[in-house]
Each structure stands twice: as structure tokens, then as C-alpha cells.
Design a protein around this nucleic acid. Structure first.
Lengths: 196, 196
DNA sequence: CTCAGTTTTCAGACATTCCTGAAAATAGAG
DNA sequence: CTCTATTTTCAGGAATGTCTGAAAACTGAG
């Protein structure tokens, strides 16, 4: 690996993490190198810095492009393709979350929708469906929340994140004002009784 | 696989998703079966329903326990171990997020902290460190937010999620009130200039 | 068109992960 | 303690995933 020590440490770590993130080691390393690079790099730069084969770089870049995590950027007077990661780290995280949602959440959501439309054949299936319904409602709630938040501009997002649970204080106050004597709170989401 | 069609469809899907979630197919399937089961199941129930080897079930359960995703529950008059998933789906999601954070975020956070304390040897390393600093700040912001939110009780959490970006409206109003003539908004987080 | 520079594809070598059956370890009953 | 039911470990075969070099495909210049 042809990189100064600090860079190499980062790249190696990202490579290892890659496997926990649904991409292989090489793909993680390629991303890491691009992320810390001062300028856009071409495939051969990556071959040189990582000491891996040209074809491996090609496949890695293809995968990163399918994740929208790297951008191809033309360089005047050079026929080769050059690649960068976006400068804005917030946009990177947005992309990452969107792509993971697409791969990890959306397929499950449509599977759940499909199975919830079916008629259960017996008590076992009926109970299963009740559980799926809980799961479906929760995922819907989370994805609706994210779809809403995702539209915020970065500045507002930072403000909101910095507030943390302080925003919940507002709700507490609201609840205290509107609470009816003897009124019940919202019930937790569950169609299933506790299992003995 | 010894399950009614609807259950089987769910279990197969969860198995496939498992690989995108950092566990293998079998572990995903075991979890799915436990999730929709009406009662706690013992290892042999899983062998029967999934048609996999006893030892594979043992390893899978061990992994799920290391994720805190299944609970061992004694059954009176039976020496065997029985397993369930929690009934409360919110607690399941909390556990899942906590465990993924532990595996996917925390190691990166400490790696970044370590590398940010080092002295860069040259311009390349200096630029790399600036990028790492951006990444570190963002991850700190997100994890601090999550640590804060995670403490909320389920009811409040649901309220907050349902509000979505409406909470941001409050900030907008606040900003409008306190805005000074000619005053600038918060700057986006970046220690790096744009790359040409 | 031809040609050189560049990227992509892909068969198969190599590496890793997964799964099983057999054997060992564990735990409770008697 | 012994005996039996149960769980865990683990070597190695099966299945997947990764990486490479060679060849094919593409692309723009001349």
C-alpha cells in the first residue's frame, strides 16, 4: 500500500469496516482513498496506492457508483476517468442512508405489505400476521419520519440534531396543558398480547 | 421448511435480508421464526421448522444472543432452553440500533479520535486529517443526538416521529424572531475547501 | 477507417464463510 | 456418584465470495 502512515491506517480501517457495511474490503478501501484525496483520482492512482489489480479497481468503482457514493469527474486534456467523493459530508451521509434504506428497508416493506394482504389460513398464520402488522406500522412510521426530515436543509438539520430530546420538552408541555382529568395516554403500538 | 406458506415467505425473506444485515441466512431465519412464534421455542423446534442441523441452530442462537435479539426463557418442567424475541417491537428496534452502532460506528469513532491526535507528516496527511475531522464531527453529532433520543419513552418517541419535520417549524420561527439585520446563518460544517 | 489508450468482462485460482455430523462438554434427575 | 437429556465445540466438506490476468470492448485522435 503506497500511502503515508496516517492515511494507510484510515484506509485499512475502512476496508475492515466495509464488510460490516455490505461492501467488500477493497470497495471500502477505494472509497477511503477517494474520501481523503486532495484531487480526483483515476483508476491507476488507486491501483498504485492500494496495490490491487486494475480489474479489481474497476469493479470496486462500479459498485461505489451503484451506491452513488463516488462521482465521475472529467479532467481537461485527459481521456481517463477521474473519481471523487462529494466534499459535503452531509450529502454523503444522506446518500448512504438513502441507499441503505433502498437495500435494507424497502424490500422488507413491500414484502410485509404483500403478506398483510393475504388471508391467514389458520391461527398460527393469524398470529404471525399480527406480528407482521406491528413491524409494518413501525417501519412505516420510521420511513415517513425520515422522508420528512431528509428534505430539511443542512443548517436546520444540524440545529435539530443539536437540540436532541429537548424538542420532546415541547410535547410534554403540550400534553400537560391538554390533559383531561382521568384521560389515558396513547397506547403502545401492539396487536399482540404478551406471550407467557 | 416445515411452516405454513405465509410464515415461510416471511422467514425466507428475512433469511435473504440477513446477509445485508451482517448476519448469515440461517441466523436471519431463526430470528424470523422466533419473531412470529406464538410461544417460546426450543432448539429442536427450530430444527424442525427450518430443516437445518441442530449444531447450526445452536450457533445461530448464540449469535442472536450476542446481539441481545433473543431471550432465553425457562419453561416449567422442561430442561431444554426456550427462546423468544421481545413482544415490544420498539424495544427490538432500540436493541438493533444499539448493536449496530456498537459494531459499525463506535470502532470508527475511536479510530478517528486516535488519528486526529497524530501530527500530520506532510500536506497530504494534513488534508486527510481535515477530512477525518469533518467525519468525526458529524458522527459525534449523530451519536449524541441518538444517545439523547434513545432515552425517551416509547410514547414520546412516537409523538416525535409523527411530527417529523414539523418540529423544524419551531426553529424557523425562532430564527425569524432573533434574526439580526444582515446577520448570517450558521455555516455548514466543513474544514475543507471545494476540490477543483 | 486504424490505432493506441483506457475500461470492462469473465473464467478460474484463491480465500472466506457456512453448515454438518460426530464427539465432547454440561447439567439435572435419581 | 451414574445415567441420560441437552447443548456446545470443532474438523473438514460444501457453498460463496473475492481477486487476478488475459482478452474483449469501448473511445477518441488522427
Amino acid at each position: 500500500m503506497n500511502l503515508p502512515p496516517l492515511c494507510e491506517a484510515f484506509v485499512l480501517h475502512f476496508g475492515e469496516m466495509g464488510s460490516r457495511w455490505g461492501v467488500n474490503r477493497t470497495v471500502g478501501q477505494i472509497y477511503a482513498v477517494l474520501f481523503i484525496a486532495e484531487t480526483a483520482l483515476c483508476a491507476d492512482d488507486l491501483v498504485d496506492r492500494l496495490g490491487i489489480s486494475r480489474s479489481n479497481v474497476s469493479m470496486g468503482l462500479k459498485e461505489l457508483q451503484s451506491w452513488n457514493l463516488v462521482r465521475q469527474r472529467p479532467v481537461a486534456g485527459d481521456r481517463r476517468d477521474f473519481f471523487t467523493t462529494p466534499d459535503d459530508i452531509y450529502s454523503i451521509v444522506r446518500t448512504l442512508v438513502n441507499e441503505r434504506k433502498k437495500r435494507e428497508i424497502d424490500p422488507t416493506l413491500s414484502m410485509l405489505r404483500e403478506l398483510l394482504m393475504q388471508t391467514p389460513a389458520n391461527a398460527q398464520e393469524q398470529h404471525a400476521q399480527a406480528r407482521l402488522k406491528d413491524m409494518h406500522e413501525l417501519i412505516e412510521l420510521l420511513t415517513a419520519w425520515y422522508a420528512d426530515i431528509e428534505k430539511l436543509e443542512t443548517d436546520r438539520l444540524i440545529q435539530l440534531l443539536s437540540l436532541g430530546s429537548k424538542v420532546a420538552k415541547i410535547l410534554e408541555v403540550k400534553d400537560r396543558i391538554f390533559a383531561l382529568p382521568g384521560g389515558k395516554g396513547r397506547q403502545p403500538l401492539s396487536s399482540t398480547p404478551n406471550r407467557g
